[in-house]
Amino acid sequence: MSAEQIRIWVQKISESDREAFDNLFRCLYPRLVRFAFKYVTDKASAGDIVQNAFIALWQKRVELDPQKSVKAYLYQTVRNRSLNYIRDHSYKTVRLESLNDSNLKSEEKVAPPDESDQLMDLLKEWTRKLPHRQREAFELSRFEGLDHDEVASVMGVSPNTVNNHIVAALNYLRDRYDRYQKEKNEMSYD
């Protein structure tokens, strides 16, 4: 969905248009649930959190400004509620600091021998090892497709800080990648 379409929907939602609200929901619900799922551990809770976020959106629909990013608002709400959920359910296993990665590995398909897919899998693995603020900034930007201002408002920091986090993440990834390349080259000299 284009940013323009989303802006139109937000304008209509601020005028209490239910249909526009439904359309926005259908457009953003799946990715927001997958995003919440990264923090909380089950699909049902992730679904609840996102549904609550949309209800809150409807509650304050009159104040909505189509010029502001509703995506950033929703990501921010979902993230905050997810963090609260983790805090309140801390006895459950928490995903945030990339703990039990073997869980995640079993969900993924078997890595094909293809060179570029291998790189993608490695990238995925490496990003999980990033310090969690850097990982968050990087993933919000690359995986969720938010721009730096949106990432900044979701994380509650300045765009400059977002920039720094992403640069640090890229440095780490670049370093890992270079080492990986070196090892590969060394191995081929057998």
């Binding site: 570029s116 790189l119 993608m120 990238l123 995925k124 990003t127 990087f138 690359r142 995986f143 497709g145 890229l170 990834l173 670049r174 990648y177």
Partner: peptide
């Protein structure tokens, strides 16, 4: 890396 990560 930037390009690849966008595809993930």
């Amino acid at each position: 890396i930037w390009e690849k990560s966008r595809q993930i």
